[in-house]
Design a protein around this nucleic acid. Structure first.
Lengths: 225, 225
DNA sequence: AAAATAGTGTCTATTAGACAATATGCG
DNA sequence: CGCATATTGTCTAATAGACACTATTTT
């Protein structure tokens, strides 16, 4: 007889708003961990693929149906006591989103990391793993643009990097790096003054997914979480 | 009622032998997929942590108890039809091992990739994901040494890189890179002539896990699998 | 000595890091 | 104009890629 285990999908959905890295969470209203912040999650259905379950949780539980969120599998958490009621295996997904309104209907809200020191279950560990994945993916992929609106300026992209990495970056060197990286940015032909000052060119995400050579975080930030 | 699913752990254990990248596999002797190569795996026990399950499968099913194998979680595969008998969720682990004898008792053998074009279930996809993980980890970590014996020469480490990446590397530039990388190699004070020619210094793995800046694969190999 | 492999050095191209100067909007 | 931000450019340091040379063993 093979042991069978309940399996859930939990989502670490990150965005950048008000110059802070925020996660999409809700406040539990019943035990266990009543009053603590929790990631959105749900049990997978018996005939459901994992990416489909993640998309469903994003739409139904996280309240972001159809939103342009980059979703990728993060890792699986299976420590037997992670849920005190019963053993639950959790396949965590990482979502990177532009600054979208949180669904009040789904009781979700964006909270900066500083407010999330106490979370339900092992959700803080999962969230920290997601943040570290996001930080390292900005180094060697073009995923930083997933935090931006469809058309964005180089400075807006730079602020994403600065906030996710927690370091200021030289605007001129950053500009050189991303505009010279083949396929990272596609000019839209338009510009905007929404950031003040001289109008900035607007770009869309290009087809390139990898950044070669990578843009390394300044060494100070390489410390483990 | 929450749906419960059987969960297995499958192991992609890789090594370098006879100048080839090899995976540890066994030949299935019953349906489904009778006669095909399969990864070692097993169902997780009800009270067992995932790393513990992976270690147990490595010892009992893969026949490598106590062997110095680097194990890390790879990813989770959950497509409903991946096992035709019943839905099984598989948490895959990647193992990197030195050239160890395969256990005949466990009916395991090391097979080069070229022999593994047809495998049971989705094991080829899992194995390819493991290989891609290994290839990319060689770029930015010191894990190449996990394929080597406890004491090894720079040339032996270089051959690991060459075989895993499928590219020849310049011996002098490689030597400079790894010997100047802080904490990658620790001199043992001994040397060996087992590779012929002038005696080579023997090193042990150093404490560093990350290689900064990374050693990038030549661009030709960056293509997706 | 010849062959084989290890290890060091040198030159150059590329890239990152620091920083100056110019451009173009707005109030 | 004066201010804010964008964009281009320049100089320098670090690193990678290409390649020559010397060192130390075995046969």
């Amino acid at each position: 007889m093979t042991p069978r285990i309940p399996v859930s999908v939990d989502l670490v959905v990150l965005t950048v708003r008000f110059a802070e890295l925020c996660a999409l969470v809700w406040r539990r209203d019943r035990p266990p961990y009543a009053g603590r912040w929790a990631l959105s999650g749900g049990f997978i259905h018996l005939d459901e693929d994992l990416p489909a379950a993640a998309a469903r949780v994003l739409a139904e539980r996280a309240g972001l149906p159809g939103a342009p969120v980059h979703l990728e599998q993060l890792r699986t958490y299976g420590y037997p006591d992670r849920d005190p009621r019963q053993r639950v295996l959790s396949v965590a997904y990482l979502g990177l989103a532009p600054d979208l309104p949180a669904s009040t209907e789904a009781h979700m809200s964006w909270r900066p990391l500083t407010e999330l020191s106490e979370m339900a279950f092992d959700h803080r560990r999962i969230m920290l793993d997601g943040i570290e994945r996001a930080r390292s993916k900005l180094e060697y992929t073009s995923l930083g643009a997933a935090f931006c609106p469809p058309a964005f300026t180089v400075a807006e992209l730079r602020r994403v990097y600065e906030i996710v990495w927690g370091r200021t970056l030289d605007p001129r060197n950053f500009h050189r790096k991303v505009t010279k990286a083949e396929g990272f940015l596609m000019p839209t032909g338009h510009s905007t003054t929404r950031d003040g000052g001289r109008p900035a060119m607007l770009y869309r995400r290009g087809p390139a997914e990898l950044l070669r050579p990578p843009m390394m975080r300044p060494a100070k930030d390489v410390v483990r979480l």
